[in-house]
């Protein structure tokens, strides 16, 4: 291998922003550890959990964090690492902290309420999928034969959009998406790039199209696609490389056409 192998047995430092629960103040703690071979952020957090002693020698509780698949497909382990939002399972220590004494900073996402430490409540993200009716309205689950045929090109587009793992990186990075703890305000607040992109996915599906107008109606309203300021931060941080700005543009156009149509049909 051409790469310089990082030195085994080195000590690295974790700076972790902690919080004991909703409404409680945040505080920082630091931990030194000797990472295992091929370590990632998660394996280091586990090591800390086994011996939760801070750099100052203070015994503390294990850090709380969210994770699942450990291979960047479930979206659970998203956090802010060294100032940037990403998944922690693919946060390889050899890359993030190759040298003895290197520090890694971990913070919870800031756009969702903290449950505890690095674990946040992303319920709103799922709620916003409901807002755009992100599903295919099938009749029932009885045997009625195959679904619509599809060209390989169209499948490729759908598959890409359908890879969104609801991680929330695009929301954390978005200047228009702000933390909102009051559930009753969710329906009027910015819906987020992930949901706009899902609306596009289902509006393009043969059967999904049936709900096209309802989706466009939601996206035309308050907190819809019009709230997007086109900062394009979302697409830069999406780990699945979903073409979010394309989706936003497509849905922007579709809502305009939808508005014109509803105007002439007297619906509005």
């Amino acid at each position: 291998m051409s790469k310089q192998a990082p030195q085994q047995g080195r000590t690295i430092r974790f700076r972790i922003k902690r919080c004991d629960g909703p409404g409680k103040p945040s505080y920082w703690q630091e931990f030194d550890i000797v990472p295992e071979k091929n370590a990632n952020i998660i394996s280091c957090l586990k090591q800390i959990a086994e011996t939760p002693v801070t750099v100052q020698g203070e015994k503390t509780t294990p850090v709380v964090w969210d994770s699942g698949c450990l291979e960047e497909v479930c979206g659970a382990c998203t956090m802010v690492i060294n100032g940037g939002v990403r998944q922690s399972c693919t946060g390889l220590i050899d890359v993030l902290a190759p040298n003895n004494g290197d520090t890694i900073t971990l913070e919870p996402m800031s756009k969702f309420p903290v449950v505890r430490d690095l674990w946040v409540d992303r319920q709103r993200l799922f709620h916003n999928l409901e807002r755009v009716k992100a599903w295919v309205p099938i009749d029932n689950t009885y045997s009625l034969g195959a679904g619509p045929k599809e060209s390989p090109d169209s499948q490729a587009t759908h598959y890409k959009l359908s890879e969104c793992m609801s991680c929330g990186c695009c929301l954390e990075a978005c200047p228009q998406f702000n933390i909102e703890e009051d559930e009753s305000k969710w329906d009027e607040s910015f819906i987020g790039a992930h949901a706009i992109s899902q609306a596009r996915l289902f509006n393009n599906h043969e059967t999904g199209k049936q709900l096209k107008d309802e989706r466009l109606e939601e996206l035309s309203g308050k907190g819809g696609v019009g709230d997007c300021g086109n900062a394009q931060n979302c697409v830069k941080v999406c780990p699945k490389e979903i073409p979010l700005t394309e989706s936003i543009a497509a849905m922007g156009r579709a809502t305009t056409i939808h508005a014109v149509k509803s105007f002439f049909s007297g619906k509005k």
């Binding site: 599903w135 295919v136 099938i138 689950t141 045997s143 009625l144 034969g145 195959a146 679904g147 045929k149 599809e150 060209s151 390989p152 499948q155 759908h158 598959y159 359908s162 289902f202 599906h205 059967t207 999904g208």
Partner: peptide
């Protein structure tokens, strides 16, 4: 086979042949 058909109706993006079959 019934399961595959149902998933197909639900919109699973199964890979396709050039003619558009699964």
């Amino acid at each position: 086979p019934k399961i595959i058909d149902l998933l197909d109706r639900m919109g699973v993006p199964f890979n396709r042949t050039s003619e558009g079959y699964r």
